[in-house]
Design a protein around this nucleic acid. Structure first.
Lengths: 341, 341
DNA sequence: CTAATTCTTGGGAGCGCTCCCATTATAACA
DNA sequence: TGTTATAATGGGAGCGCTCCCAAGAATTAG
């Protein structure tokens, strides 16, 4: 029960250190009876190989890092991040990797994170949740350092880096098209920050849908916000004066805030204004009026990202992998076209 | 820029490996000019000591683990967990420890987690967010293995384990007392699961407040729930038939759900029914009616827990430390006694 | 100016694994 | 039954640090 080494186990089982190592690492070339003898000793003694020693000798840490740059504030207000984190943690457990989480608190800490995560022997690879201009710095450094890296979301410069994302433009396009098809004439949008790829792309999808149906663009129907509930609320207050009859919000949580503002203004949902959100997190179904929204596979994001990253670690980082997951428009009450209602 | 070792840096600086090690580890006994020479080489080469080698030689991993047992479902629906996680991550950054997250998904995984986290050389200490009967197993094993451990929340057997918690009984007592003092006659409660210390203690505080003011206990005014929004909603539907004029919910998110049920039933808040929640997470201020709630210092939970854990790692695990943080009743609109309203 | 003390520095001996190569046991084949 | 191919095993040489002890340099005291 105390601190045994491979060598101790070897002695107890009457074999060599190497053989025990083979058994522990499930290598085939060990005779069955010998394997059993070793396994019995391991079982009886409760031996666990020392991780630090294995890491040093194998030059691998079996640890994956997730970096959440400056977006910490979002970590709270938007349930997207816990979901993402869970997906990653599950996948790491499954593949027997340790999962290390790095939250970058402030702009200043942004500089400290690179030395931290790039220390040799600490991480085999990193996941970066990104999509903001400011994240380029750390991503660039990581790439230069030849660290296997998978970006979750679309990075600003995407040519030489692997990433996993959804087609935000088309997803938004489909949502807004649905609103127009169902007869809405003045469709507004609450966008994410325009320094983020998500903010840009979802807005682009909105514009594309309008253009394609020859609806003229009214700038007063477009309000930029920040992915928070409070932000959605404020954006909606502003939007109300433009008299929209539908609003596409770039996240569920902003849609929730926007609907709160609409309710306060005495507007009927969906009769007077229809709403569509984005994410399909549990919160979408918890308001009085269930939210129509674009479902993105958040858990899959995490697990897929881990799989890609492990592949890069084991098979080399080139060529960069680009993976696009599917989205789906989930129609509920808030857009006024729910079935059977 | 390539993989340098201490020895390489030593050669470049014209000193010995040991001296470089001293400089890197900020030990005092190095002459200033020598230190500067070494620092310059480190600067110029971008040298980082290899973590795996340091871990093996020092028998320390400088890594802290957070175990979230089976409570994964809560991780999502209750924003408490992301907040807690953030507090811990921040503190780990500050003290230059790596933060590893272990989410236990299912009951079956509960058995796998102990071998994982107790591997030698992986973690210097662990934090366990606990308060459920089922968690005793892993906590007991960790203690037996002499792993430094700090429980966040009150464990069921608390004599020989360090923990950090709030005084749930008194916090609930104060909240319910406030409702009674302000004239409410039929105060109900939505409790957490009664297999959790949090569920038990907050209910005990509710009962204590009633007893102390000679209010007789009406079992129909007490409904057990599960810390989810949906759970709070259902509990409130049940509670409504008991005609309460106030409800103390054991979490903000359950209070939100309960208020939703009340609104649907056409009840005025706070005129007909007052509500008090527990946590004071951002969500408390985002509903139409701002929630009166018991504030607990979630971020501090994390940072304090990390500090205690590091103290145990460096100074020994005995004696067990027990830390109780302060709470505060934050009065807003939902209890009908907000000032200046 | 020498002896005693303190400050710096260097190098050996691990830490507990993995990986490679040499050796021996076993199986396959003629 | 001998020969060759193949499977199974053992042990040496690291991986890149830390820690300890001894030796040398610098400082202080007598």
């Amino acid at each position: 029960m105390t601190d045994l080494t491979l060598e101790d186990v070897a002695r107890l089982a009457g074999v060599s250190r190497s053989t025990v190592s083979r058994v522990v690492n499930e290598q085939p070339s060990v005779r069955d009876d010998v394997r059993k003898r070793v396994l019995d000793v391991i079982q009886a003694t409760g031996f666990h190989p020392n991780v630090a020693a294995r890491n040093l000798a194998s030059q691998r840490s079996w640890t994956l890092g997730l970096i959440l740059p400056h977006s910490v504030s979002f970590f709270f207000t938007d349930p997207f991040y816990p979901h993402l984190t869970k997906g990653i943690a599950q996948a790491c457990n499954q593949y027997d990797y340790t999962f290390a989480l790095f939250l970058v608190d402030s702009k200043e800490d942004e500089q400290k994170i690179f030395p931290r995560v790039s220390r040799k022997g600490l991480l085999d690879g990193v996941l970066v949740q990104s999509g903001h201009h400011g994240d380029q710095w750390i991503i660039g450094h990581l790439i230069d350092a030849k660290m296997p890296i998978v970006v979750i979301g679309r990075p600003f410069r995407s040519d030489n880096v692997s990433y996993i994302d959804i087609d935000n433009i088309n997803a938004a396009y489909n949502a807004v098209s649905h609103l127009i098809r169902s007869g809405r004439k003045r469709v507004g949008t609450i966008t994410g920050p325009i320094n983020s790829t998500v903010g840009i792309d979802r807005k682009a999808g909105y514009l594309k849908a309008l253009n394609e149906r020859n609806v003229s663009i009214d700038e007063t129907l477009i309000v930029e916000s920040d992915f928070t509930e409070a932000g959605g609320y404020l954006a909606m207050k502003q939007l109300l004066s433009a008299k929209p009859d539908a609003v596409f919000a770039a996240s569920d949580i902003m849609a929730i805030g926007a609907m709160r503002a609409a309710r306060e203004a005495g507007v009927r949902i969906p009769a007077d204004i229809a709403f569509i959100g984005f994410d399909d997190l549990p919160i979408a179904t918890l308001s009085d009026i269930k939210l129509t929204t674009v479902r993105q596979p958040v858990l899959q994001f995490g697990s897929k990202a881990v799989e890609v990253l492990i592949d890069m670690i084991e098979n080399g980082i080139d060529p960069p992998r680009h993976i696009i997951l599917e989205t789906e428009l989930v129609i509920r009450e808030s857009c006024g076209t729910a079935l059977g209602k």
